[in-house]
Design a protein around this nucleic acid. Structure first.
Ligand code: MN
Ligand code: MN
Ligand code: ZN
Ligand code: ZN
Lengths: 138, 138
DNA sequence: CATTAAATGCACTACAGTTGCATTCATAAT
DNA sequence: ATTATGAATGCAACTGTAGTGCATTTAATG
């Protein structure tokens, strides 16, 4: 049994062939991926299966969904120990307006924000847009 | 000439009947509105006209577009003196998961964030999700 | 009134997201 | 080993937002 299979089983997700492929694909990519990215990476992939796989992964805390402002949902593997299903891993995300990639800045947490009276915060999303490290070198 | 007409002309936007109506509608609403909200508010409204009106308003700095994480673009009137077309009015937004409304917290600016080396910030979007002041009272 | 450009209305496209249902597959019980 | 069961997948279709092309109407100008 491979590491990926173990990871999936630990999260109560049956390690099917497609799920393992998707997990591996996301692990190799260092950036957040869209449904369409995965679809294009595997010629034989069925959009619905990918969609439901990502949904399952998200529900089981394997990936987290990212809204980077492009109106296309991105997904990234959760770090080990990340409890984002409890909204307790509020790291920020960076979207490069040049190469269009979105990355997790897992070490950079969203600072605490004081809200007006009556407002109760449950979750937060912070996206910085700009030029990524790769693009700024050229 | 009404105040609204003056405001539009000051921003080099011709104050047509529909534009005045849309502006008035947004001014009366205290919350951010979606294209569909406006469409439903005026039976006779043409979706394309609303779409292009909001686009014009945004280009001329009359409204700013808000990505509140719902994947439905919202719009809100800019405060007087807001220069959001220069990405210099980085206030945060609050989205209520109960009543689904989105509000500008114009007094609450997005704190400065230190990024890893090589990353250049140009814009930022911070959305807090939770329970709004109205919903938390009940 | 005639000219001209902006604004609007209508039709249609593009695409991410989503769902229903039939089929296949894996697992566990018999 | 066979069968029963539910999960996973494949296929088709639908939804809703966003966006574009083009003809027509409207408003400003001389
Ligand atoms: Mn992330
Ligand atoms: Mn705002
Ligand atoms: Zn880049
Ligand atoms: Zn509310």
């Amino acid at each position: 049994m491979t590491d990926i299979e173990k990871t999936l089983e630990n999260k109560s997700v049956r390690p099917t062939a497609m799920r393992i492929l998707i997990y591996k694909y996301m692990a190799e990519k260092e950036i957040a991926v869209a449904l369409t990215d995965i679809e294009n990476a595997f010629e034989k992939a069925e959009r619905t299966t990918l969609y439901r796989t990502l949904k399952t992964f998200e529900e089981k805390g394997i990936v987290h969904q990212i809204d980077d402002g492009t109106n296309i949902s991105k997904f990234a593997l959760c770090e080990p120990g990340c409890n984002c299903e409890l909204d307790q891993d509020l790291h920020l995300h960076f979207h490069c307006s040049n190469c269009d990639k979105t990355v997790c800045l897992t070490e950079h947490k969203i600072p605490h924000i004081n809200l007006p009276t009556g407002y109760i915060a449950e979750d937060a999303n912070l996206v910085i847009k700009g030029i990524c490290d790769t693009c700024s070198q050229h």
